[in-house]
Design a protein around this nucleic acid. Sequence first.
DNA 1: ATTTCTGCAAATGCTTTGCATTGCA
DNA 2: TGCAATGCAAAGCATTTGCAGAAAT
Lengths: 148, 148
Amino acid sequence: MHTVEEILRKKKIKVTPQRMAVYSILKKSKFHPSVEMIYQKLKPDYPAMSLATVYKTVDILKKVGLIQELNVGDGGLRYDAQVKPHSHIYCKKCGKVVDVNHFPGELQDSLLKKIEEETGFDILFVQLYFFGTCPECNNNKKLLKASS
Amino acid sequence: MHTVEEILRKKKIKVTPQRMAVYSILKKSKFHPSVEMIYQKLKPDYPAMSLATVYKTVDILKKVGLIQELNVGDGGLRYDAQVKPHSHIYCKKCGKVVDVNHFPGELQDSLLKKIEEETGFDILFVQLYFFGTCPECNNNKKLLKASS
DNA sequence: ATTTCTGCAAATGCTTTGCATTGCA
DNA sequence: TGCAATGCAAAGCATTTGCAGAAAT
């Protein structure tokens, strides 16, 4: 196992406070923030930080493989420091993205090979997204239903 | 079963040549085109058509449930008149999006319920994306490998 | 006849780019 | 010190919006 600093230096990418800060936000948070969200979280500690730097940083971290990009639609890309295969669930109402610690075993072995054979593609990775409404956003509706 | 015209009229949405043309492109094509691609395909037959109209039309068709939006990343949304559950494979090199007529049965019943229980979400739909390189884009590489 | 839609052009908003300054190695 | 990164502002693009004229019901 290597530290983030080592991984960056090995690829001749300079280790800067901004880059470490962006990675640290992503590593800590379970919210799968967008670039704008990362920027807002960093502002108190790095008042001079530029939004452009956050864009450039997530791009680099993505290319190096330290983070993955999630595409939940509705406009914004989200970033995730968890790069092991797992799936995501997105709330259509509040935009929250939550990890789903379930990844169909079927998807990891025989089915992938079958699909590669059928389509002729070489499969690099799989993204599985669930879309729905989260418990918090459901609350009102459920209470209304229960009382009617 | 209802015709597209009937479905639109029922929802008080006017049936226009532009709307039918956009739907027809999506129904016919297996390419999962973007808004820009749809616009380019329509230009010869509808030289006056506006790009804004295509944007507005896919939005309406999506809301009515006649088409689905695919989010393959790399910037552009794609549209698909096939609304039954199926998955998609996207070529990272040429951007092609192809249907995968395989949808893990696991995903449709017990697993969904389990995930709903674990997360508290109400799941509305699932998107499964495979990312990789298509046979055409692989060709060169494979030939090189074979001859080395 | 009324209502909605189209097409144009302008506006918006997210993301990228260019470049002088700053800072890591 | 030298090269790369930052931060700012401007540019770029995809998408949305407003509205007058056109078309559908």
